[in-house]
């Protein structure tokens, strides 16, 4: 769907701007490609330390085992000097922040790593940057048409396509998060560890917001918190992911009992 939207935007640009449209399309695509290459080369900073086996054998071996099960090569693992729990992946690399090691136990950290391996296995680490730069590409073309073309239909169609791209992009990214979770459940020896990790991370985030918002006279660990929901979120909420994981695990258990 996203590809069709981009294609339609390119067609409108060429249709209404002719040869100049081609220049705009290739010019902006080349510019974004250069930007992407520059960003990927500079994505690792001083705060990232490459994980070697002797640093944390349990983590290295765990990731190697899951990568093998996923049918991908051993990813590069980086530890990020950041006290806030966080994890992400790019290319064939996984980044885990030091904050994760403070709030999660080993199995839960492997659960988080499994989700990131899921992204690599599903090709998301290649697709996500394209989607992200596609957003700028769409915006650039819509801007060019709005400024140069004096045709209301063309301008409205172009802006409409840009908005459609945004909606589809958010939907697509959320689906990929669920898919990475599904892959992680298959990779993990103990699938519940991902659910537990998400519960702890949800608790951490809620608590951190509350601590910042209040003078903190006391913390109620069992307090029920409402999660903020925004239609612009690229990630599903922790609750949505936890429910899906539970459904997946219970579904798998049920299928096993039928065998």
């Amino acid at each position: 769907m996203l590809r069709l939207i981009i294609l339609a935007q390119i067609l409108i640009t060429i249709l209404y701007l002719g040869k100049f449209g081609l220049v705009v399309v290739f010019g902006s695509a080349s510019m974004l490609l250069l930007m992407y290459l520059w960003v990927t080369r500079h994505s690792l900073k001083r705060e990232h330390s490459k994980l070697e086996w002797e640093d944390m054998p349990w983590l290295y071996d765990g990731i190697a085992r899951m990568a093998n099960k996923a049918g991908i090569g051993m990813p590069y693992v980086y530890i990020l000097d950041d006290y806030i729990p966080n994890a992400y992946s790019f290319g064939n690399s996984i980044v885990l922040s030091l904050g994760l090691f403070e709030v999660l136990d080993r199995e839960q950290i492997l659960g988080v790593a499994a989700h990131e391996i899921g992204h690599i296995k599903n090709g998301d680490t290649l697709i996500f940057p394209i989607i992200a730069y596609g957003r700028y590409f769409m915006l650039f073309l819509a801007g060019a048409i709005s400024l140069i073309v004096h045709n209301t239909i063309a301008v409205l169609a172009s802006l409409g396509l840009y908005m459609l791209y945004e909606i589809e992009r958010l939907k697509f990214l959320k689906e990929r998060e669920f898919k990475a979770d599904e892959t992680a459940l298959y990779l993990l020896d103990r699938p519940f560890s991902l659910k537990e990790a998400l519960e702890e991370l949800k608790y951490y985030e809620d608590l951190r917001v509350n601590v910042r918002a209040s003078a903190l006279p006391g913390i109620e660990p069992n307090i029920e918190r409402k999660q903020k929901k925004s239609f612009m979120d690229t990630h599903p909420s922790y609750d949505e992911r936890i429910w899906r994981i539970l459904a997946e695990i219970e579904g798998a258990m049920f299928r096993d009992t039928l065998k």
């Binding site: 006290y83 403070e102 709030v103 702890e200 608790y203 608590l207 951190r208 601590v211 913390i219 660990p221």
Partner: peptide, 14 residues
């Protein structure tokens, strides 16, 4: 006994 790792981490960083 009900305290979680997250609570301690947040408070120590505070």
């Amino acid at each position: 006994p009900e305290m979680r790792r997250s609570t301690v981490s947040i408070l120590m960083n505070r």
